[in-house]
Write a protein that binds this DNA or RNA. Structure first.
Lengths: 188, 188
DNA sequence: TTTTAGTTACACAGACCTGTGTAATTGCGC
DNA sequence: GCGCAATTACACAGGTCTGTGTAACTAAAA
């Protein structure tokens, strides 16, 4: 009972629920039983869609790997808007840090596949910054992109422990100074 | 056998070992059996010194809460030296991020006592920065201290996933720019 | 020597975990 | 209605974990 068998891909339903639980409570803290029970399916069904918990973890992280959608705003505004968006997400009470950093922290360095996707995610964001900086004609786009990536992860970590969304604004202000210092015209 | 009963406080020996294992492999990943076995003592002895694993975790984090020792170097140099020190620690292969951030990531937000000590640690470092900035006569010492704290945690998180000690240098360069922008004379 | 505090070995309870096996059942397309 | 694929309930193996109970042992203090 209580299972009306909605069409939308069982696999996706499992992933949705795993995402919520893994992210909010930790990967190690959540067992597959818990996930199945939350959806109202049997554990067997879950294992029919994912061969192991590790596979589910991998799929969870891959699903979290989303690129920012392209924008027509000016590059400098896009960069600063990153931090505004972070501040908004910090304010939601279901924010609990970066899922990739958390996964590496939880699962340890020996878990190669987790570390691999985490690195890929971090690098993809750094490259997104670098691309915008190149559009702005910044000389050391490489270095500045790295610094911006550091600011992003820094305010995320700070908010994770402090629950203080204003950390995003601090990071934004720092980013603004760094951009100005690199010769970028920045409005506010 | 294999237990020569060295005097030095059993409690401290337990903490030393717990520290190493908790930090390198994760708190949830290490059981009390593992810690006891590593020292060569019985699990019973461990529980004679700590009433529960939670108590051991708390003691582990408290032991990690060390303040930087006072220095006679000029304040600006002390601030920048923070990042040099981080780069050195990143290069050691037994570095695995910030134990407080990791603990919060692992144990979740519901664990109040862990979060509490993590917040205290982050704030103590921020205040250390603020104090130095005040000595330098920086106008917004409060805000800049927060930004520096963000840079510290940012490069730590980046190094945790990327294993790239140069992240500390990127953060240091960003810190240098922020200091200069605040009117601080900075040598190199 | 006797007392005492710390430690040991070891078993065990109770919980939770991942993953599998199986036979019955359900819903859907045909 | 029939067949088929997905799902279900449920038991279970085998492992891990935290924490306790107990009786014997050891070393050092008294």
């Amino acid at each position: 009972m209580a299972s009306l068998q909605k069409k939308p891909d069982m696999k996706e339903r499992i992933l949705e629920t795993a995402d919520k639980l893994f992210y909010l409570q930790g990967i190690r803290a959540i067992g597959v039983d818990t996930i199945a029970a939350r959806i109202g399916i049997s554990k067997r069904t879950l294992y029919n869609h994912f061969p192991s918990k590790d596979a589910l973890i991998a799929a969870y992280l891959e699903r979290r790997f989303v690129q920012p959608r392209p924008s027509d705003k000016p590059p400098a505004a896009q960069i600063l808007a990153t931090f505004d968006s972070l501040e908004r997400r910090f304010s939601a009470k279901d924010f609990r840090g970066c899922p990739f950093v958390n996964a590496v922290a939880e699962l340890g360095a020996e878990d190669k596949s987790v570390r691999k996707i985490a690195v890929a995610f971090k690098e993809s964001r750094r490259l997104w910054f670098r691309n915008l900086l190149n559009q702005l004609g910044v000389a050391d786009a490489e270095g500045l992109a790295t610094q911006l990536a550091v600011l992003v992860d820094g305010c995320i970590a700070q908010d994770l422990v402090r629950n203080d969304p204003s950390m995003a604004r601090a990071a934004r202000e720092a980013a603004r100074v760094l951009l100005k210092n690199a010769g970028v015209k920045v409005s506010d």
